[in-house]
């Protein structure tokens, strides 16, 4: 029983990490049709900016309020990079899907290399508050606090995103744009502002994932975003592109599956099961759990 609870909670921690990355990807893809390979870069920027702030920014640190400030700085940096990428690189290629993918591919290669050039290829120890290293007893299982922090953050982000999408005017425009972009444009609404907005949201969520993932894993390295990104892609496809709720369900399914199978089966089998799940979903329900059909 202890093991099951522990696995379920660490699986949910992993799911939270996937969700933070996938929600932004899913919104960006659903609205702007951009398959964003540079999303891993936003995550890396968030992680490194937090790491840098904790050591160098006055007032920020590894403990208490200082840590909150460091994370806020990381999220702000990730958001800024995402907005800049959208404005400078993606916008001129509006509605040319393949070129947009190519640009984000080039950006992910160059960006990760830049991180590596600046801070080295090796993993660096991540500053984290003392309490995140401890464990909490839940139903007899000793759960690491870093994972619980991730789950909490993901739930807050999910709630915030849903509230934003359902109760604000811009949320309405984004939802309408995911459903039918041409119609929104025809109604005289500048849908490109919404593009910038979803990039900002996605960048912020990914940067938060980078910062809290750094807390969870204890280290930060330039390649971290890339390996997470592939599973985030899988989560997006399973959940349905453009659906935040679908991403949340899919993230939970993928995280739990991975954690349980990796524990009870051989290490690595869980990752294979996730891809098998993707194949099954695509064959039975190509549009994902809750999404619109993916067009070319």
């Amino acid at each position: 029983m202890n093991t099951v609870v522990l696995l379920a909670l660490t699986g949910l921690g992993l799911a939270a990490l996937y969700f933070l990355v996938a929600s932004g990807l899913s919104l960006v893809f659903g609205l702007a049709d951009v398959l964003n390979f540079a999303h891993g870069l936003f995550l890396g920027v968030g992680a490194y900016a937090t790491w840098w702030a904790a050591g160098n920014l006055p007032g920020a640190g590894a403990e208490g309020l200082g840590f909150v400030l460091a994370v806020a700085f990381g999220v702000a940096a990730g958001t800024l990079v995402a907005v800049l990428v959208e404005l400078v690189l993606i916008r001129p290629l509006y509605s040319r899907t393949i070129e947009q993918v190519l640009v984000t591919v080039g950006l992910s290669l160059a960006g990760v290399a830049l991180l590596q050039a600046t801070w080295g290829a090796d993993a660096r120890p991540f500053p984290r508050p003392e309490w995140t290293r401890r464990v909490t007893g839940i139903l007899g299982a000793q759960v690491p606090n870093g994972g619980l922090l991730l789950i909490g953050a993901a739930v807050l982000v999910l709630g915030g995103l849903l509230a934003f999408l359902h109760w604000t005017r811009y949320g309405l425009i984004i939802r309408a744009g995911v459903e039918n972009r041409e119609m929104v444009t025809a109604l005289g609404i500048d849908v490109r502002k919404a593009f910038t907005l979803v990039f900002a949201i996605g960048g912020a969520a990914a940067a938060l994932a980078g910062a809290l993932g750094g807390v969870y894993l204890g280290t930060v390295s330039p390649g971290q975003g890339g390996s997470l990104l592939i599973f985030a892609f899988i989560v997006v496809v399973i959940g349905g592109m453009g659906s935040v709720v679908g991403s949340a369900y899919a993230a939970v399914a993928v995280g739990l599956l991975q954690q349980f199978v990796n524990y009870y089966g051989a290490s690595g089998v869980g990752d294979l099961c996730v891809v098998a799940l993707l194949a099954v979903v695509l064959l039975l329900r190509p549009q994902g759990i809750a999404g619109k059909v993916a067009h070319a």
Binding site: V275, A279, P286, A294, A296
Partner: peptide
């Protein structure tokens, strides 16, 4: 190939990841 476009890209990516 049961998928097309971007979904196809993601599926091939996932297979390669395996």
């Amino acid at each position: 190939l049961r998928t097309a476009g971007i979904a196809f890209a993601m599926v091939t990516l996932a297979f390669a990841q395996v």
